[in-house]
Design a protein around this nucleic acid. Structure first.
Lengths: 232, 232
DNA sequence: GCGGCTCTTCATCAATTCTTAATAAATATC
DNA sequence: GATATTTATTAAGAATTGATGAAGAGCCGC
């Protein structure tokens, strides 16, 4: 049951789109400004966004840029016929497709379906996998459980999210800012060794010697990573 | 072992797809017209169809419409790059995905696998279970009754739905938002400790000591779950 | 309209978790 | 080697989250 966010400052357009997308499987959210859209993306687990480019307060492209900092959810831009430039710009910034006004109902639903399928099935960045293994670590996203050498380890939500990010992207290095953006769904702000503190807590739980970590390695000046094909 | 039907009027394309999908687990069928495809679907237990849109005798879209009358087997349409209109039309008529020519072998197999997974897991094969057991709990979805150690327990509708969600997905952790979305079929907006209250009511009915629940466990910060393979 | 039942909301409490800030250690640069 | 930047460590206050009790709203059959 995909969650779809519709964002346009004109209520009529939002309502029209809601009708085009009236499908019992969809949960539709609506926003009337980029700022509102951003808020909903942070709070809800949105699977697809339809967003107008031209909006007061925060225009579509700015909002998209902000959303892209924290999510790779598919974004379909809504544009007027003539705004060719925006189209192109939008796609380069990070939109996945665009739809031109006036909308063709069939086209809207087709493109939405197509993007949803791509995102939910073939999973753009975050695959649908729900079990990750690395050495003696086993993380099951269904049960939110972590096993270390077969024994259950209790993680707090933030710890869990951070570990999931690392274990699901073996070898990839994430800077503390990356981690903050991905886990908190916010821009890293001010004095932030918050991530380091959490990393430490995780290490205390999964490492024999937190000062000589086997799992969460640090790449100085770059960030943290978890090596793939881990040997014991 | 899934049965896959490839349908295209060009033999070369059929052969190419057969190579891309050469997997000992697959049984491949071929058809060179929509009519032929329809015949095979009727005769065999096909689990996925790859079909060209442009074909003589009976084109892909017509064939798909006919097939959809008798089956909801996944259909991947094969289209040429330019046939944007067909893409859209196809998706609305009932295709599950499309692949554009020229084919990328990896893409073909990825999309095929993805659709097969979806279909074989969630699809026709999985019958609606109507009786769930966990420890001393027995929930019968036919009679909407819950037995605790053989004795009937009366649940309100919401309580029933929540318990059913949990008992039918053992070990899976549902956040309060997940539960709200699944049970209320509405967006989990606004004040949300409604779910917690219902959980409490359920616990009062099925737990000996609601403060130390045996059945509905909480994973702090993540949500609620019911452990499978429950011991008494 | 009147009870009975269910659902929702609100306020409060307790427990856990998160963040901050201060300080120490490690690493890289010059 | 000195310095600046990055990471590690610790502990305490702040913020969330879930539990709980109770009151009010809505609905239904009578």
């Amino acid at each position: 049951m995909p969650n779809i966010l519709i964002c346009d400052d004109e209520k009529d357009i939002v309502n029209a789109l809601k009708i085009y997308l009236s499908n019992p499987d969809y949960t539709l959210y609506e926003a009337f400004s980029g700022a509102e859209a951003l808020k909903i993306v942070k709070e809800q687990d949105i699977h697809l966004i339809l967003m107008d480019i031209m909006m007061p307060v925060m225009d579509g492209l700015s909002a998209m840029a902000k959303i892209r900092e924290i999510s790779n959810v598919p974004i379909l831009l809504l544009t007027a016929k003539s705004e060719e430039t925006d189209k192109i710009l939008g796609l380069n910034i990070g939109a996945d497709d665009y739809i031109t006004k006036p909308f063709n109902p069939l086209e809207v639903s087709a493109r939405v379906n197509s993007q949803l399928r791509r995102y939910l099935n073939l999973g753009a960045g975050a695959p649908q996998q729900e079990c990750f293994v690395n050495g003696g670590l086993e993380l099951n996203d269904r049960t939110k459980e972590l096993l270390l050498d077969g024994e259950k380890v209790c993680l707090t939500p933030k710890e869990y999210d951070i570990l999931k990010l690392l274990i699901s992207n073996p070898d990839k290095v994430f800077s503390p800012k990356d981690i903050y953006g991905a886990v908190w769904k916010e821009k890293p702000f001010g004095s932030d060794n918050t991530v380091a503190v959490h990393i430490r807590h995780i290490r205390e739980k999964i490492e024999i010697d937190p000062a000589e970590p086997r799992y969460i390695k640090v790449v100085f000046g770059q960030g943290y990573k978890m090596e793939g094909a881990h040997k014991r």
